[in-house]
């Protein structure tokens, strides 16, 4: 197959002769170079230390408002632009599980730098998981050792976050509970991983739960900020 999974154009990069001859595994992206260049990375040194958005200053205006949970730091890999929206829609809402591999290598590299004890993907509720057939965040982290440290309280979601406005999102109650005993988190450095950081409500709920359980440090990593 040489067709890009996102734009369906026939322009995937073919392995070079050098790659074929040096007998190392060839990393082939299922997306073409044009699409990959369309994803706009957020450089770590030009982002808000609170939420990870592209921001020249240290803390963005949103995060100043979040000061109640000042400890929490999130890093976002990409801006949530139209192309990434299209990607997420095909991956998550249409359920094209093949797309999980696109950012896997990058997640591996970044998470290695974080140097944490536990990597916890944000869980999705059972009904969604049954219908979608996969947890989109766990898909990104397929090649890493992760801990299912959290689970959702509700079996079914009445309204997805994406259907709410900012005020409604911020008023969302704690949706998670611990999935393992508290001792598992005691004095541990934890990294929570989610797909999109919007208001920060979801990931901060998760962070609070883990800090209360005794984690020494909780940080966040999301694919995108938007």
């Amino acid at each position: 197959m040489t067709e890009c999974l996102l734009c369906h154009r026939d322009n995937l990069r073919q392995p070079t002769l050098w790659q074929l001859l040096n007998f190392r595994p060839v990393e082939n992206s299922p997306l073409c170079q044009t699409c990959l260049n369309g994803f706009k990375a957020i450089p770590a040194d030009q982002s808000c230390t609170g939420c990870g958005r592209l921001w020249p200053d240290r803390l963005c205006s949103d995060c100043v408002r979040w000061q109640g949970l000042a400890e929490f730091k999130n890093r976002a890999l990409y801006q949530y632009n139209d192309l990434l929206k299209q990607f997420m829609s095909q991956y998550k809402f249409y359920g094209d599980y093949r797309l999980r591999t696109v950012f896997q290598t990058q997640f591996c590299q970044v998470i290695k730098q974080f140097n944490v004890d536990l990597v916890i993907p944000i869980p999705i509720n059972q009904a969604t998981e049954r219908q979608r057939g996969f947890n989109q965040v766990a898909g990104f982290l397929e090649q890493l050792k992760t801990t299912d440290g959290l689970k959702t309280l509700a079996l079914d979601k009445l309204q997805p976050q994406s259907a709410k406005n900012r005020q409604q999102r911020l008023q969302t109650k704690q949706p998670f509970t611990l999935n393992l005993g508290r001792e598992k988190f005691n004095k541990k450095r934890v990294l929570i991983v989610d797909d999109i950081y919007t208001t920060g409500r979801t990931i901060r709920h998760a962070a609070k739960l883990l800090l209360d359980a005794g984690a020494s440090e909780v940080r966040g990593l999301t694919l995108a900020h938007g």
Binding site: Y94, G95, D96, Y97, R98, G133, F134, N135, A138
Partner: peptide
């Protein structure tokens, strides 16, 4: 192999625009 989901079922990557077939 290319379209296996974690629950050991499979989906069709060709016509998911009309609702995914598993």
């Amino acid at each position: 192999q290319t379209v296996r989901l974690p629950r050991n079922n499979y989906y069709c990557p060709h016509c998911f625009q009309l609702g995914r077939v598993t």
